[in-house]
Simulated assay, not measured.
Amino acid sequence: MDLRIFTEPQQGATYDTLLKVAKATEDLHFDAFFRSDHFLSMGGTDGLPGPTDAWITLAGLARETSRIRLGTLMTAGTFRLPGVLAIQVAQVDQMSGGRVELGLGTGWFEEEHTAYGIPFPKEKFGRLEEQLAIVTGLWSTPLGETFTHQGSHYQLSDSPALPKPAQAKVPVLVGGHGAKRTPRLAARYADEFNIPFASLEDTRRQFGRVREAVQEAGRAPREMVYSNALVACVGKDEAEVARRAAAIGRQVDELRANGLAGSPAEVVDKIGRYAEAGSERIYLQILDLDDLDHLELISAQVQSQLS
């Protein structure tokens, strides 16, 4: 089971804070550092000192880390034109020496679009499908050839399809709870399918749908990685669990029910149940980015039990 660190900087974090977490992620032997792509805080927090841009952050971290994978859960399709996004991700992949992964979703939080003057189209899924076709198409176009796309939402003509990423294939993540269109989209374009904040039952059901879609698309079952994103709140004892839950404004019982909360032994057991449901990778949503002791505990007493 791979464990990755997943942060929500829109809740309030500077680049320097994210750099400390990314360096701890690397030093503590986690597999990757991922971040959300939002411009407005949620859940009543003030979000101070304000948002940071996902791909600018990852560009900086690409030069200040050396081993960990870097990516987004998920880049909002409403924020960037697909041709520009392909250039940005390819450049950051070059800057990292080939360690970037792209999670791409529709974008869903209307208030942040209103706050920063970003168009929020009613029909987003069709746009996402074209975005995935364009980004992956630009990257896979052979050198010296051009790429053209004439779609309902985007038109590209005779693009030189440059620059190319450092990796021969940048892993693409698609995710969500949709029962029909989402699995088909993942089967067509994704290397990894992620389901966020889902129960064991919902995880098992959605992974099954995606596996069926992968088979229908004529792909080998092992071509897709299946992953979860779950909030983490781990403590050496019940008092430490309660303190960490309070620090993120959550209740311990709710976190135990809906995330990975409790003692290291409890969390290892629950991760095992997600593995039985088909999960191969878990993104640990870390909400208190100043609590690096939390990462140390998870590394020493959870991750060490999973290898």
Rank of each mutant, 00 (worst) to 15 (best):
L287V: 03
M42I: 14
L292V: 10
L102F: 07
G43W: 10
S157C: 04
S36Q: 05
S159N: 05
T17C: 09
A186S: 10
A217C: 12
D237K: 10
H153A: 12
E223D: 15
I134S: 00
R205D: 15
A90R: 02
R256C: 04
R244T: 08
T136M: 04
R181N: 13
H38E: 10
A166I: 02
L70I: 11
R35D: 00
S66F: 03
V100M: 15
K169H: 15
A168S: 15
D291F: 04
A24T: 11
I68R: 03
Q131I: 01
A76M: 03
T72R: 00
P221H: 08
S41V: 07
L306H: 06
E254G: 11
D291G: 05
L287H: 01
M95V: 08
A246I: 06
E112M: 08
V210T: 12
A133Q: 07
K124H: 12
P121Y: 00
A186P: 03
R80I: 00
E112A: 07
L104E: 11
E238N: 07
F34N: 05
L61T: 06
L289S: 03
V241A: 07
V267E: 04
Q91T: 15
L102T: 10
Y116Q: 09
A32W: 00
T52R: 07
Q303G: 14
A265H: 09
Q11H: 14
E64Q: 14
G235K: 09
T57N: 10
F34I: 05
Q206L: 04
